[in-house]
Simulated scan of single mutants.
Amino acid sequence: MDKHVKGGKARAESLSVEARSEIASSAAKVRWDREKLLPKATHRGEIRIRDIVLPCAVLTDGTRVITELSLNSILGTSGGGKQRQLRKASGVNWPLALSSKALEPFLPLVFAEGELLPIEYKDGRRKAKGYDAKILPKMCDVWLRARDAKVLQDQQLHKALAADMLMRGLAQVGIVALVDEATGYQDQREKDELHQLLGIYLSEEKLTWAKRFPDEFYKQIYRLHEWHWPSDGNKHPGYVGKLTNQLVYECLPKGVLEELRVRNPKKEGSGQRQWKHHQFLSDDIGQNDLRDHLLQLITLMRISKNWPTFIGHFEFAFPTPGQQIAFELEETRK
């Protein structure tokens, strides 16, 4: 028996029961605290490419992972005992699926430093280990380079065939999209992206009112409709407000108008909103986007002889919202 092992055993035996219990409790606490910091799998699924099935997950920090076990089943070895010993002895952390001697010359040509570090995470109650899903195409590339260099043994050629099949499948759609689809994470991703957009597009607090809509914007609406400009240029009929929503706010990024309606609800009884929607747009992003959009609209209005002509220009520039305005136009003619 190793002398260090003997010494450690002797020291343990010399400790009291209370001391040993305290040491064990401290060690357990350290392990527990370390595990609490691990990211958790929030979405799980399987990538299927022909006959290949790869379990995958999305973690709380947004990392897409593929388990080492699933990588081994496709590109690695069924046993892995010898490879695990060799990997442990050499101090490397890359997947067993890349532990063949024939692959080693190609690893530095494909992978950047640190790219093959394993990722530990919690999958329910158990602790799991995987790798960033983005390394999968590169793993396949390593196998194919080794095949083309004719350094693989005959019993390894079926792994290169699997790598070739995976690469062809991954060429059609990115690995991140595959993981998101397999786990259902794309729905959450869209929510997160919307949340990030609203975070920069809208202001945390309502801004002080300032004139954001140039008079020309409204004067052009009146000109194109052949309406008389009101004596009080600050008061317009409700239909003008409806057009403003369709021409402006419905053209803002998806989800912005819905959030504006939540932050600026209609008052009970009157049906009017207490503030202007533009007071909730962020000063640096939302307000600038509003200004640029209004300038585009005014330009389209200036080159239009009448409302139908303008609608044609508008539908060409902003096709989806334009369809709604064309419908309103037809109704006003009845």
Rank of each mutant, 00 (worst) to 15 (best):
Q246S: 14
D232F: 03
E204R: 12
G233N: 03
P237T: 06
G233M: 04
P214Q: 07
K235M: 08
T244C: 11
I200A: 03
L243Y: 13
Y222S: 09
G238F: 03
G241I: 05
K235I: 12
R223P: 03
L197Y: 08
H225L: 12
K254N: 13
W209L: 07
H225I: 00
V256M: 05
G199K: 13
I221P: 00
P230I: 03
E226Q: 15
P214A: 08
N234L: 09
K206C: 14
W227G: 01
E250T: 13
Y239F: 13
K211C: 06
E204S: 12
E226K: 14
Y218T: 11
L252N: 07
K242D: 08
D215G: 00
K254A: 13
L257S: 06
S231G: 12
G238T: 05
H225C: 04
P237F: 04
E226N: 14
L224Q: 06
P253C: 11
N245M: 11
D232H: 09
V248R: 01
K242V: 09
L243E: 08
G199D: 14
F213C: 04
I200Q: 10
L252G: 06
P230V: 04
K235T: 11
G233Y: 02
L207Y: 02
F217V: 03
E205R: 14
L224D: 06
Y201V: 07
L198A: 08
F213R: 09
E204D: 14
K242C: 01
G233F: 02
T208R: 12
G255N: 11
Q246Y: 13
Y201H: 09
L247V: 06
I200M: 05
Y249V: 06
V248Y: 03
E226W: 01
H236G: 01
L243I: 13
T208M: 04
N245A: 09
G238D: 10
E205G: 01
K254T: 13
E205F: 07
K242N: 10
E204W: 02
Y218S: 06
I200W: 05
K206Y: 02
K242Q: 12
E204K: 14
H228R: 12
V240G: 03
V248A: 05
R212K: 15
P237R: 12
K242T: 14
V240I: 15
E226T: 08
L198C: 07
K242P: 00
Y249T: 05
L197Q: 10
N234I: 00
E250R: 15
I221G: 00
W227S: 05
L247A: 04
L257E: 07
L202C: 06
L202T: 05
G233A: 10
K211S: 09
L207M: 09
